[in-house]
Write a protein that binds this DNA or RNA. Structure first.
Lengths: 208, 208, 208, 208
DNA sequence: CCGTAAACGAGACGGTACGTCCAGTCTTATT
DNA sequence: AATAAGACTGGACGTACCGTCTCGTTTACGG
């Protein structure tokens, strides 16, 4: 009943008062889920993941702490769900060229990791989720799988076009693509400039 | 006096009893520094970064909690120093070929992130360090700069040899190199196999 | 509607299914009153008064918590009613001698306070009831008045017989009689032996 | 270290600032013990035992909740210690006559149970203490033993004087003595008048 | 060899948040 | 109607760890 990191892309929210909210499968949902997830996002933006507390979210959302624990197992689950719902995924880009597709895709990635609080929250969140073995895996499925599949599609299109070697290791390509952004933002700290997407695309297309 | 993330590659340790440990500049050092950093590492290995507590380290090291706070500002500083001392850096590889050098360097990187507890602790540690603006920067300088410089040297050698384009963005190349490993280990969760170093090298050398 | 500590010596219980239970005055009664009060008693016996919870009673009785709150004001009222129905009162003893009567009466008292869970539950129950001014009074009327009247009758018979002074303070006599048992059981903790009734009777009859 | 109901008649309190308070045996004591026990008593008087909360005591005493839990196991232990220190024991009365002694002793008893909040708190306290098997026993030893011994001395003196039968069951006598007051105050609810001590004395001396 | 300064051990303490429990109320649906 | 189902507010629980503090003791160096 209680979702650990059971993430839903729930669009049915802000229902008329006094009607029990349900998701698309008819399952019960927290009464004030919208307010709660908004509160999580707001807290992330203002204070960052570390400073975010369950009690703080409860206060901000005007909800009792116990209500949060009824529906989520704790801070990681709350944040994971909030991020999953708010993180921009967008459509798979189709610009006509492989380079253009990769650049478009990377732009969204860069925006997600830098523009929102998601990037800053991510390492700590992952650290928290990794405490339990299943936590991180569930998060990956809810959060990454879809987005990763979109990019894989894009890479295969490039292979078909002959822009990429036919034996390209797709998974590795994706890891290098996203990893370059992720690592720069979190670890190396090299400033992220507007032309980063193009530079990464060029590096990986071997046409730099 | 108190080092926040003032990391030293201290080789003077395990001194004869009853002599005050000093570093190479004659500065005083914590009496039981060796035991303490060992305790940190042990704690990391057994419980992970999240579960590690300053009190726990104190108990494990047979030292009073206040002693730790006298010398370090808290958990992140303790862990950062412990990792910096234990993380294997090694010499800059020189195998004769650029591909060989990259593979050798990546092997050490993979070993660091997977073999030790460092990789697992890293995201949470970074998350903690990122709370204070200077924390993360200090950690980078102590931890990354040297290692990164070694790899940069290796990349420039490749450019000189003509194995890499002359206008290669070195910083970006390093980010993609390490990022692919880091991202795979922490985010995507794709299993890390023995041939990963070769595959990454091939991908980035455009010869895949 | 809702009885606070409105205790009834209800003998209409375990009715045929699907007939609305009513008391002797035709008033409506909770549908599953029997199961509920049994659950209270069971809970008292197994866990004691402190550990008894309204939710626990609801679960045990297979009834919804709200149902309990519809008919009773809370735990004290529930327990008070359950005890009132189960506490053995018995007839006023008439053995022919005052000493015999007192002993017989004390035997029942001792049995009530030691054999059942009533004695153990009593102080905490009284503590809870005493929170509201009327709570304790209502409990006294339902629980004590009848039993006390029976004993008073017995004492007056003794005065008539000349076994007790004609100016005996009956209320005080009753308090000392029951108080000796109550105090020993709850406060002093001196073990209660089989001959306690005789000893108390002798003490108060002045023939010890 | 932590006293469950380890009660001390500690007179060493309100020490000069920054000196660690110790009891007569040199054992450590809570820094603000005086303020804390005062807060307990005040809370009892104003709200009664049931409404008293550990958090409330902490606030009232200007002390952190964790401090209370460091030194006491919970509410029962706190209240027990506070009552033990504040409950008037007084010297064993010696009026020259057994009747006078009993009356004097009963007056203090009545005052304790009615004048202070102790009497009102007592049943609920006992109920709480009785949850753990040792709790009640510890309380008895700290709280009752001394006072009871004083009265026993008084009863034996009466036996020596010939005012009481030589085979009087002292324990039972004490139970009846205190029980009459206790039971009236808590259970029967009969109003306690000024002449109650005399009446009880007369009843038990068989001279009523 | 002894006095001084520091590091250290011991542990109470205030503070913040945790995650849990139960009370008691409410809405909605069912019987 | 009375019940069932169960979400919800509210308040307290007892715990964990943080980082700071005082106080007394040890340690090792420098005169």
């Amino acid at each position: 009943m209680r979702r650990d990191v059971a993430l839903h892309c729930d669009i049915l929210r802000n229902m008329p008062q006094h009607s029990i909210p349900k998701d698309e499968h008819g399952a019960r949902r927290p009464r004030h889920e919208g307010r709660i997830l908004d509160a999580v996002i707001d807290g992330l933006v203002e204070d960052g993941y570390q400073q975010l507390t369950v009690e703080g979210v409860a206060v901000r959302a005007g909800v009792h702490k116990a209500t949060l624990y009824r529906w989520w197992t704790g801070k990681p689950a709350l944040v994971a769900e909030a991020l999953a719902q708010r993180m921009d995924t967008g459509p798979v880009p189709d610009t006509g060229t492989t380079r253009g597709d990769l650049i478009a895709w990377l732009r969204v990635t860069v925006a997600n990791y830098t523009g929102t609080q998601a990037g800053v929250a991510m390492p700590a969140l992952i650290g928290d989720l990794a405490v339990t073995s299943h936590g991180l895996q569930a998060f990956r499925e809810a959060f990454l799988t879809e987005r990763r599949a979109g990019c894989a599609q894009l890479v295969r299109r490039g292979m078909a076009r002959g822009d990429l070697p036919v034996d390209t290791d797709v998974d590795l390509f994706l890891d290098a693509l996203a990893g370059a952004v992720f690592y720069r933002q979190l670890v190396s700290g090299v400033p992220i400039t507007a032309d980063l997407p193009e530079r990464i695309a060029d590096l990986l297309l071997g046409s730099a």
